[in-house]
Every structure is written in C-alpha cells, then in structure tokens.
Design a protein around this nucleic acid. Structure first.
Lengths: 346, 346
DNA sequence: TGCTTTTCCTAAATCGATTTAGTAGACTTG
DNA sequence: CAAGTCTACTAAATCGATTTAGGAAAAGCA
C-alpha cells in the first residue's frame, strides 16, 4: 500500500509552508489573508495528489476525534440495533462516527469497553449501562467526560439520560390487561433486575395493579437471567400458568423474553389469549404476524437515539449543558393486537 | 475534564526517560535490559497516575489503529445486526474495535463511508458492498488496502469475500416448494438487483426450476425497490397471486421483503399456505411463531462474520494472503416449517 | 524620503506516543 | 591496565497535522 500524501507533500510540491496549506484546506485561507491565486494552487494540488488528512494526526493535535462511543447490551438484539441506527444517523449528520461495543449486560465487559473507547479518544459516550459498575459511570462524570445514558439511568445521580417512560408504559399494559378481563397477571422480568428500565416496569406494574384493585403477589413476578433465557422461561412459564399460581396473563418485560415465552407456550400446547394473555414491552415488526398478533408497547427508539446524540454533542461542543434538559423520558405507545383477547387488529 | 497523564508525566515523576517508560509499559523492559527494580517503579507510578496510553498518538506513530471498519446496508436490519455482532466479537478477540456505517444500499453513501473510514485510519474494511461503485472497491484493491467483502462479492474481480451459498440455498427452496406441490413459483427480489447475493438467488431459482421441469417465466420474477418495499409489495404481490399470473408459491429473497409480503397477504385476507406458499431467504427467530410458521433459509451469519474477520486480520497483519482461501461460500440450511404446507414444525 | 500598514507567508512548537542510535559507567579479561 | 563487554539507560527523530508568533516585501501616507 503506497503511503498517502501528507500536508508536507503538498507544501513541498508547491514550495510553500505546511502552515499555509493547512490554513487553506481548512477554509481559513481568507481569514489569514492568503492570496486567492495561491489558494487555488493549493486546492488543485490537493486534488491532484488526492490528499486526505490523517485523522489520527489531526485528532492528536486537536484533542478530539469526532467519534463517539456507543455501548449497548447486544447489538444483534433488534431493540439495540434500531437504537444504534438512530444514533449513527444523528451522529453522522453532525460529522461524527460511532465506535460501538456490546456488553452482554456484563459489568466487567462494560468497564473494559468504557476504558477501551476512552483510550481511543472518543469525544463522548452513550451507554446503555448495566450499572453494577456505578463507580465507573461516576468516575466519568467526575472527570466531566461527556456522557449520556440511554434506555436506563442511574437513580439519584446527576447523569444525563434518555429513556422511555417505562413506568407509564407499564401502567398502560396493566390497564389494558385488566380491561380485557385479566385477574391474575404475572410479570416476567429479567436480570440484571436493578436496571431502571426494569425496575420502572416493575413499579408501574405494581402501582397499576393497586390502581385496579388487584392485590400484588410477589410470587407472580419472576426474574429470568439474561444469559439463560430459554431455560429460565421453560421452567417459570409453566409454573406460573399452572396451579397454584394460575396466572391468566403474562406481562413480559422485553423482546428476547417474549420470543422465548411464545415458544414455551406453544410447546405447552396452550393458546393465546384463550389460555393466557401475553403483552410484551417493546414492539417488533413481526409481532403483527405472530399467531395471534402480539400486543406490545412500542418504544420511541429513533427519538431516543436522536435525543441522546443531541445532548451528547451539546456537551462535547459546549463543554457544559447548563440550560439543557438532560433527563428525558419519552412517551411509549400501547399497540393493541390480539394476544390479550382484544378484537383490534394491527 | 482534567488532562490525562502522559508517558512524559511518568518519566518526569520518576526522573527517567520517556523511552524507558514506553519500553517497560510495552513489556519490552526485559528485552532491553531494564532493571527489574526500575520496571516495578514504572508500573507503580503508571498505576498511581492511572496512566492510559493515547491511542491517537500511538496509532499515528505506528501507522495502525487496531480498528476495522464495517459497512452494511442497514444496521437496524436483523440480518446485518447479527452480522455486526459476529464481526464485533471476532474483532475484539483480536484486540480490534469496529467503526461502522450504514449505506442504505446507496452507492454515494457507501463511497463516503469508505472515504471517511479510511480517513480515520481504519486498518481494514469489511464491506457489504452495494457495488455500483465498483471502482472504489477496485481502488482499495489496487492500493492493496486490506479489504474483505461480506454477503456479496464483485464478480470477475479478485477481491476476498465471504458469502452464503446463495445459489445452493435457492435450489433448496425451489426443490422444497416443488416437493410440496408447487407448480407456479413467483420470486420477489429486491433492487439493487445486481448484488451477487440477489443474482445468485435468482440463478438458483431459475436452474432449480429447470431441474424440476418447470418453465421459467420472466413475468413471475419481480423486483421491489429497496426504499419502497411496502408500496412495491402492496402492488406486486396481489398482481402475482391473482390471474393471469396465479402463482401458488412465493420465494421471497430477503427478510424485509418477507415481512411486507406477510402483511400484504394478510391484508388480502388470504391464508398461507392454502392460497399461497411462502419461503424466505434468511431466517428470523420470530418466523417460528408467525401464523403459520415461515419456512426459511437460515444463513450462517456468525460464521460469515468470523471468517471475514479472520481473513481481514490475516491481510492486515501479514500484508499478504498468499496461502489463504479468501473466497468463501458458506452452506445454508433450509428450515422447514409450515408456510409451504409441510407438516413439519420447528 | 521615511514611517506605518497591509498583504502574504513561514519557522518552530506542539499533541503523545515509538524507535533508532548511542553513551556512561561498571565489570571482564588477556 | 588497556580494550572489550555488559548493564542500564537517554537524546532526538518521527508520525502528520494545527497553531502561535512573527517577518519580509509591497503599498500607503505625510
């Protein structure tokens, strides 16, 4: 691979200084009173040599890389994939690129990713934190490193974040379930369960139950480990559906869990919603075609990504965010299909 | 944000040279006969100051960034999201990070992404090329820039690639359809249609038709534009299903198209497979739960990602790939469910 | 003519690492 | 004891840009 031309090459070829070339190519030619004629020669030579600035050098000198880091649990999960796309689009509109990593909800992996991305001089970080490593987040904050949490936040800590209104969405779910005749509503949550995206869904579920005059029963809420979804669901779902628990509805808190739940119910030879109602927090295109179509909460994923980038770039570029709302909850929407017995089709 | 400590800071604090510190921290202390005692002091001080090397500086000096670029059509598409994850895992195992971009099958965007990623000094590129910009690919090749194509390749050009056996998979599809009684098989393809991932599926379809003694009918093959899937499908599917075309089966070449097709058939009030059989090239988890479960070709996505990274890293690190197979076709698998009338359940 | 402005441009420092070439001093050795 | 050999280290160049501080020549002005 031939070496790429540098500023110095252009300068030498033209018999001028690197300074001049740099100024011209950065559009500061006029500000610095460089002769129009000379400017043209520089541009021409740059084109001729197909000059492309070395971003490493530029970043080193300028102390910024125009790159942001994005850490999510798993990029292959549709929810994060869509989020990723939204972040990419918003970032690229502003001239930023994105370096990403999947943490698998593993605190150690997340810690390493944060470290590696910082080492690579990303200008800021958007993290869907697994949060066991609270101190790392705090350290970033303390160092005044541009950071925005997405999907989940750290309670009682002043870190900017953008999430769905998980609480409100959950209330929507329970209200709907009750309106369809549900009496015993089980909830399938996921560990790590300390994530606010989960705790708020649990809290919403609990409050909405009370609001609807249904007693909260700890036994009907079960937590499935993130890395053992299939096994976990295979054990828990039959247990909840059969006596003595006999739930008539299942509020499933995320899409991975929902897929496994559908599978399990199918294996049990039961039918939805006759034997058990199902709602999923987070909507997926294909839910429309499942038998029966799955009622779900649609999250404003694109908006989340955009907003997170907006806040982050503001922090990066102004090094402060005094007059900016940086704790954002976005509304969700209940998409009623038929898995709760409704006649609505969508 | 406080400035991060540099090599020079450690050196100064210890009263030694930067050279020494650099050597020690890179594990070359013993090779260069640095006193054990001194080495310990360096490590201690590095830990004390929480020193992290500046990758920009290192990359600038070393001429490599330990970053690879990944360009796909759309990271939010499950197929690419899964591919992305595979690439990430394989890369990170080797100490590389991934910068990515979505091209939306748009040649100009792809061109820009290639440019930007190269500017950022990625060490190599994995591209799911849209290929209208053949010359850019060729330019990379000519410059001996480490490059591996994924999912699709450029025919008659010596660029390394890793793809599914699209031809073989398509034969599997048609054979299965015929075995289920299909007589008139339509194919829904997508533009840009010059992508080998598509042309080979078309070729496989055609050849398999001949093999099964069915006449090829140009009219039964329709191309839907990438950016107008819903509208395109909405028009084409009814047209193909109704007379005079009256297809009894639809071979849909990708997952986005399949989702739209399912929707359209549902809207028409028809049932699968009674009114029309459907097979999709590329399998998705949820196809299991669709009504009826969708028969599909499963692609070895993880293996594709891994293999592509393996070839790329070999090129990057050895600057040659003389004795390496760098044109790889990976086997696909037909997952028989019920959308073609089979009784098999999976 | 002599002094001030403009106009147009440059040398050198800098960012933070790696690497090449070399050196001071202690220790061997014939 | 002079020469060679180790041991343990360092100065300075380098990667490729940006930026600071400044300078020579031409033009303007009195």
């Amino acid at each position: 691979m031939d070496k790429k031309p540098s500023l110095a090459d252009i300068a030498k070829a033209l018999g001028v200084s690197k300074t001049l070339v740099s100024m011209v190519l950065n559009g500061k030619g006029n500000d610095n009173g460089i002769n129009e004629e000379t400017q043209k020669r520089v541009w021409a030579k740059a084109k001729e040599l197909d000059y492309k600035p070395n971003m490493m050098a530029r970043s080193l000198r300028m102390g910024r890389s125009n790159t942001i880091g994005l850490i999510v649990a798993d990029i292959s999960n549709s929810f994060y994939a869509r989020m990723c796309r939204a972040v990419e689009d918003a970032a690229s509109k502003a001239g930023y690129h994105v370096l990403f990593g999947s943490s698998d909800e593993n605190a150690v992996k997340e810690k390493n990713l944060i470290q590696m991305l910082r080492d690579r001089q990303v200008d800021g970080l958007i993290i869907s934190t697994t949060l066991s490593n609270n101190d790392d987040i705090q350290a970033l904050q303390a160092a005044n490193f541009p950071l925005v949490l997405i999907d989940r936040y750290v309670p009682n800590q002043d870190t900017p974040f953008v999430t769905s209104d998980n609480y409100g969405g959950s209330v929507l779910v329970v209200d709907h379930l009750v309106s369809q005749g549900a009496k015993r509503i089980g909830q399938l949550t996921i560990s790590p369960s300390h994530l606010t995206s989960i705790t708020e869904r649990t809290r919403g579920y609990k409050d909405a139950l009370a609001k609807n005059g249904i007693a909260y029963d700890q036994d009907l809420v079960r937590e499935i480990p993130y890395d053992k979804i299939r096994e976990g669901i295979g054990k828990i779902v039959p247990m909840l559906i059969n006596p003595p628990y006999s739930v008539d509805s299942l509020f499933v808190v995320n899409n991975n869990l929902a897929v496994a739940t559908l599978e399990c119910i199918k294996d049990m030879g039961l039918s939805i919603p006759d034997n058990v109602r199902v709602v999923c927090f987070d909507d997926i295109d294909l839910f429309k075609f499942v038998n029966p179509p799955v009622t779900a909460i649609a999250q404003p994923i694109a908006a989340m990504g955009e907003k997170a980038v907006e806040i982050l770039l503001h922090k990066i570029e102004h090094r402060d965010n005094a007059n900016m709302t940086d704790k954002v909850f976005l509304e969700t929407e209940l998409i009623v299909r038929q898995s709760c017995g409704s006649k609505a089709v969508r």
